[in-house]
Design a protein around this nucleic acid. Structure first.
Length: 193
DNA sequence: ACCGGGATGTTCT
DNA sequence: GAACATCCCGGTG
């Protein structure tokens, strides 16, 4: 089966369109890789829950850049989370990566995530996903189209049979917007279902 | 299984 | 000073 890197144009669309299309794509970081099974869309200036809602800051600058780059942020004093920048440059739309099925480099993932009881827990959650793949501050701004810093998103032809939708998780505002997309019953979901 | 609290530090008000 | 796109652990049932 052929593997193709997703092109710039894939990301240059509304985050609500990109988000479900990212499901079952392979996220590759160096020697580790997994399948994206859960994401959330964030819609720039129109979205009170988005980091971009109040305009550009040093932290969220990557979101305002060109699409197809990784936006990595630090939160809760100890966790990194990773997004894919979408839409036109300046739009600051993004898709948060929340769940991963571990595929390659699973031994390395187990080594850095000793608290994971089962392999399906390795990438189950946005911060866990980053630890499992080794994503940190150094990856902020990496270009997913060129394979910058070893990070790339690949289409291997696999498509989800069904995509489920729900409200976003962990927010205090705009919680009612049904902008979470996931592959039901896939290993690596941040919560069962 | 489910729930509650604490960890930990950057960012913005 | 408060909030935070989270996770882990230890309680209870």
């Amino acid at each position: 089966m052929t593997e193709e890197v997703l092109a710039r144009g894939f990301y240059r669309r509304d985050s609500l369109a990109v988000a479900p299309d990212l499901l079952d794509r392979l996220l590759v970081v160096g020697d580790r890789a997994g399948r994206i099974v859960e994401v959330e869309a964030y819609c720039g200036a129109d979205d009170p829950a988005s980091h971009a809602f109040r305009g550009p800051t040093p932290r969220n600058l990557t979101m305002f850049g060109p699409p197809g780059h990784l936006y990595v942020y630090f939160t809760y004093g100890m966790h990194f989370c990773a997004n894919v920048v979408c839409g036109e440059e300046g739009e600051a739309a993004a898709v948060l990566l929340r769940g991963l099925t571990a595929l390659r480099g699973v031994d390395a993932m187990r080594a850095v995530r000793p608290t994971a009881r089962r392999d399906r827990d390795l990438g189950a959650g946005p911060a866990r996903l980053c630890v499992a793949l080794g994503i940190g501050r150094a990856h902020d701004g990496a270009d997913l189209v060129t394979g910058d810093r070893g990070v790339v998103v690949v289409d291997d032809g696999t498509r989800p049979a069904v995509v489920s939708v729900s409200g976003r998780i962990g927010l205090r505002v705009a919680t009612d917007r049904p902008w979470r997309f996931y592959v039901p019953d896939a290993p690596g979901l941040s919560r069962p279902g």
